[in-house]
Each structure stands twice: as C-alpha cells, then as structure tokens.
Design a protein around this nucleic acid. Structure first.
Length: 585
RNA sequence: CGGGGCGUAGCGCAGUCUGGCUAGCGCGCUUGGUUCGGGACUAAGAGGUCGGCGGUUCAAAUCCGCCCGCCCCGACCA
C-alpha cells in the first residue's frame, strides 16, 4: 500500500477524551474513532489488526474442530424468557420494540439462540459433540464504558458453545478450549494468566478467566507467590493469615462507645486492632434480611454470598431497614439477642477469635468479651463470605497471596445443563432415553484483546505491534521520494516485497523524513526500512526493528532475502511461546 | 446511580472568576518559495450555531435555570 493512497490520520497531540496509553495511541495512530461513550468505529489500520486477531482465533478454533457460525444480533424476548434471563439481565440489555410493538433485544451473549438451534437440529448422541462459535458484535449497555475498547457498549466478541453427551467429554473439551485460548493469547504476544473464576450470572460450575495484567480497576486476581494458584477476587479462598489475641476479656461486658459506629472509629476508641472486632452486616437477599458476621479487618464478598445462598438478588440494607428489622442503628448491631429466625451467617474469620467485640444492639454501646464459639446461639451458616486480601495464605501451599490488577480477555465456562434444562434441549442417548445436553461456553473479547496488545506493546513514541497483530508488517521510508535514485530503489524494493507476499507500506508522501519516522513509530510497524541517499551511496539499506530499536545495514542485493528471514524470525519468536495443542485422547 | 472534571475551528488549549470593540493562540489544512535522517522555515490565506434551549442585561463564550454529551473515581460488571 502506498501511504499517499492510505487513509492515514495520525494525531500529533493526545486526544482529550483518552487517558489510558493504549487508548490514546490507538486514537492518535488512527486505528479507531469514537462516536459515543463505548461506541467505536474501526478505521482501516484498526480493522486490519482486528482481522489479524480474528484469523488467529479462527485458525486455532479449527484445530479443535469447532465450526464458525453467525447468529443474529437481534433476538426476541420470548427466547430470552425461556432461560429466564429477560428479567435477570436488567439494564445492561439493550431493549427495543419493532413496529408491531414486540420486544426485542440486541444480543449481549448468545446462549439462548445457540441452544435453540441445537435443540432443534441435534436429536441423537451420534451427532455429538458439537462446538459452534461466532465472531460477532455484542451489545451491552454498560453502566460505565471506559478505557476505549476495554469496556464498550458495542464490542466484538468470539463466543463458542459446545454440546456433549457426557460430563467427561465436556470436561475434556473444556481443557482443549482452555489450551486453545492459551495458544491464541500467546500468538497475540500477550502476557496472560489463567485463573479460577466465579461463574456470575452465566452460571455453571468450573470456569476460568484469562486475565492480562494492567489496566487497574477492572479485574482483581490473587496469585500465590510460590505455587501456581491464581483466582479472581470473587473466587479466591485465601486462608486467614492473622490471628489476633489482645486485650482479652473473658466474659461479656457492655461498654459505652459513643459515636463509634464504624470499625475504624471503634478500633480507635477502644485502642484495639480491627481484627478483634466482629462486624455485623445486614443484607437484603431476595427481599429477606440476612445478617452476616465477619471479622472487622475483612470485607463481605457479595458474589460469594450469592453463590452460597443460591439467591438472585443481594444488596446492603439501608439504615432504616436495619432499624426496622433489628431496632438498632448500623454500627451498633450485634449477634446477641437478635430476633428469632433471623438468617445468620458467619464467616470463618469470626472463629479465629477467642473473644471479640460486637455491637450491643443499642446506640453507643458495644459488648466486649464475646466468644463466638460459645455465645453464638441458634442456627448459624458458617462459610467463606469474605473478600480475600493481600497476604492471606494460599489455599494450596499457604504461601502469601498477592493481588494484581488485570483485565479479563477470555473466559471458559462449564455450564452443565443450566440452559439445556431451562430450554428443554435434549437428545436421545445411547440407552435410547432423552437427556439434556451438557454444555460449555467460551468467550474471547476480540476488540478488547486488540487494545490489550496495544497496552502491553507500546512506548512513549507509539505502538509496537507484534508482527502477528500489526496492520502491516513493514514500512519503507524513502528520505526524499522526489529524488529519482531514492524513488527507484524504494519502488523496486516495494514491488519485490509485494511479490514475496509482504504486507508492506511505501511511505511515498511528500513530507519531511521526520514526519514519516514519527508516523512509523506511532503506527508501530514492526519493521522499518529506510531508503537514504547516505546509505544508498554505500549500496546498503537500513533495517530497523520497532520493538527494540535495533538496526542493521544490509546490502541492496541481500535486502529482500534478509527481510524474508527477519519476518520468519519475528513470527518464530512468537510461535516459540505457544504451548502445544491438546490432542483428543 | 453517587462524587469530581470538562464542552470555544479538524486536534490541543487560552479567554469565563471580575459581562463591553471585529473571540484568540499553537498544531493541522490551502497556495507560493526555500528545505529534506526524527513532527522544518517563510509569506499569504481558508476555517467558529463559543454543546443546546430558555432567562437576566443597553450588551452574554462570560451571570442564572433546565437539558444534552464526554472523561475520571466509586457502585456495577461473562
């Protein structure tokens, strides 16, 4: 491609709308353009890179026998009601009506349509397993779109759904897909972690997230500092590291604690550590109040509560609700003398205390010397309801866990029969009886991956695409294309490289060399070839790598051959990081 | 949804507090000339519903009200 014919629109200055490096650079280099919050257009360069990612995904999916489909974006309310998600999905679902006033939505994910297709078309175990995927635009009305392509309302996703006869077959395929994902992210040259995750509203049992580090605020992951354990904050089950013992009061005694209505104030007032306090939290779970006890230095993890209680809706109770149900203001609530039949849950951390401080159920008073082992009466549901924190201990090897911020680029779910049962998707098994499909679903954020690669591969001058994702592999920059000898050399090399199937840009613009260099750095072509009168006089041409700035002078006769080898080498460096395929055993 | 910031030429910004000539600056763009290894120099130009609507005023980018949009933090989040 000649630069004079390209849709190049690089920006000299950082756009005000972006703050994250990768977002700024994708805008500045002319890869994307924003239309509304979380809504983007892909410009020619961006689309080229996006297609590279898509094709890597297609190739790797073909290796595990998955077939590409394209499901409709527009979906009906009826289909969504079958699996019970029309109401559950809430505001995130883009809803619309057609001219006959029928309810429709724009697909945020495609479990329902795929299950509908398979239940109608697959009737026998002989046709299983089946794995279908699509690379499709998804719509989610996110509460807060942010970071460019990272959290969008319209975005590109690869989603795959698999259908199996047996649990074993599903588990085997699940592992193959996980490996498929590892291969894809390796080929994108992304640093990623495969971590145990929480299923959320998708449901099912086993599931793993693929997380790339960086872009804080999106996803929290806990990694063991010693072994291989990695889990998201909703899932991580860190062991409690600190078991405090101080100021032991051995029997219950009421103390006056004016205005000490928070853990911090109470700890200061009594001069003890937060870990010596038992916090009493009230939640409204499906319209019923529940009380959760937890040690003062931990936070309640709502996702864990939801999963443990098998409820669909959970929120923290308001101050008025707490007074209405328990006649005590927030901050002075405690487990002693609660109304009978109160659902009472206690996090394991509470039982690391021999004696702790609890609310007295009246304003400005707390109780010292509360013994959770003896003084907790009635039925208590013990469990892990706390968010793991830094330096909690690994559940596998007890080394300290460390928190990292990351971003989810892929997720694999073992769904079991959640959707097939709800949607009556069955087949006839080899015993001749009807059975629900066992399902898996597997997603990759494609547009998000594009920005993740940009986030990991850039410097202060611009993008540094790995060759597998770069919109073009190489740029030829003649210092002055108007000079016949440079023009000849550049044209000749350009034609030669085109014939060798290089994806190459010839920067034939009539501008100073500096601008061409700056643009090349910003756009991030992996290889830059400079045609200069200085080197031409010596019969050589400069070849420079964007990723490390290294350069070499190559003779004009050797240049095409050299570039061919260089390109092969760059691809090979990436391929060497790709783990082997898992073959079906 | 709560908190904060912003909206003036294609892009980045000043001007708003303290109302007052024809709304500025840099980059980019157009034309001519000189340049050509890291966003050149020079001369001449084009380009604006000051986010929108309403109000106050002799006079509004500037003050007041309502609305819209974008960004950041939080809540939320396959």
């Amino acid at each position: 491609m000649r630069a004079t014919k390209m849709f190049l629109c690089t920006l000299r200055e950082d756009p005000a709308e972006a703050e994250v490096d990768s977002h700024i650079l994708l805008l500045r280099a002319g890869f994307i353009r924003q239309f509304a919050a979380g809504v983007f257009a892909y410009l020619p360069l961006g689309l080229k890179s996006l297609k590279k990612i898509e094709n890597i995904i297609r190739e790797e999916h073909s290796f595990i026998g998955a077939q590409e489909t394209q499901l409709s974006i527009l979906q009906t309310r009826e289909l969504w009601e079958e699996a019970g998600r029309w109401d559950v999905y809430g505001d995130i679902l883009f809803r619309l009506k057609d001219r006959k006033d029928r309810d429709l939505c724009l697909g945020p994910t495609h479990e329902e349509p795929i299950t509908d297709i398979v239940r109608n078309m697959i009737k026998s175990y002989r046709e299983l397993p089946v794995a279908l995927y699509q690379i499709q635009t998804k719509f989610r009305d996110e509460a807060r779109p942010r970071f460019g392509l990272i959290r969008c309302r319209e975005f590109l996703m690869k989603d795959m759904y698999s259908f199996h006869e047996t649990k074993e077959d599903l588990e085997k395929f699940y592992k193959q897909v996980a490996r498929c994902y590892e291969r894809i992210f390796s080929r994108l040259n992304l640093t990623y972690y495969k971590v145990e995750a929480d299923p959320g509203v998708i449901g099912g049992s086993a599931n793993h997230e693929f997380v790339v580090p960086g872009l804080s605020g999106e996803s929290q992951v806990f990694m063991c500092s010693k072994c291989n354990y990695k889990a998201t904050s909703e899932k991580a089950s860190g062991k409690i590291s600190e078991i405090p013992l101080e100021k032991v009061e051995e029997s219950i005694r009421e103390v006056y604690t004016p205005q000490a209505n928070s853990i911090e104030k109470l700890a200061n007032f009594l001069d003890i550590k937060p870990s010596n306090i038992i916090k009493t939290m009230v939640f409204i779970a499906d319209d019923q109040p529940i009380v959760v006890l937890i040690r003062g230095d931990y936070e309640v993890n709502e996702a864990k509560l939801i999963n443990n209680l098998n409820i669909s809706e959970l929120r923290v109770a308001t101050g008025e609700e707490v007074i209405r149900y328990f006649s005590s203001p927030i901050g002075f609530l405690g487990p002693k003398n609660l109304p009978a039949l109160t659902t009472l849950l206690a996090d394991e951390s509470v039982f690391t205390l021999k004696y702790g401080v609890v609310g007295a159920n009246k304003e400005d008073y707390h109780l010292l010397g509360f013994n959770p082992h003896k003084d907790l009466t009635g039925s208590i549901i013990k469990g892990n309801y706390r968010s793991t924190k830094n330096d909690d201990l690994c559940p596998l090897c007890e080394a300290p866990l460390k928190e990292i911020k990351g971003m989810e680029v892929g997720h694999v779910f073992n769904l079991g029969t959640k959707y097939s049962k709800a949607m009556k998707a069955t087949f006839t098994n080899r015993e001749g009886t009807e059975q629900s499909f066992l399902m898996g679903c597997y997603g990759i954020g494609v547009s998000r991956s594009l920005q993740s690669v940009a986030e990991e591969h850039h410097d202060e001058n611009g993008l540094q695409w790995p060759i597998s994702v770069a919109p073009y592999e190489l740029v030829i920059i003649p210092i002055d294309y108007q000079k016949p000898d440079q023009k000849n050399a550049a044209d000749q090399l350009y034609q030669k490289l085109l014939s060798l199937n290089f994806e190459v840009v010839l920067d034939d613009r009539e501008i100073t060399a500096g601008v061409k260099f700056k643009d090349a750095d910003l756009i991030g072509y992996p290889i830059r070839v400079t045609i200069s009168p200085r080197t031409l006089a010596k019969g050589v041409i400069e070849v420079k790598l964007r990723k490390d700035g290294s350069s070499e002078l190559i003779s004009q006769e050797e240049i095409a051959n050299y570039l061919l080898h260089l390109k092969t080498r760059l691809f090979k460096e990436i391929e060497e990081t790709v783990p082997p395929l898992l073959t079906i055993g």
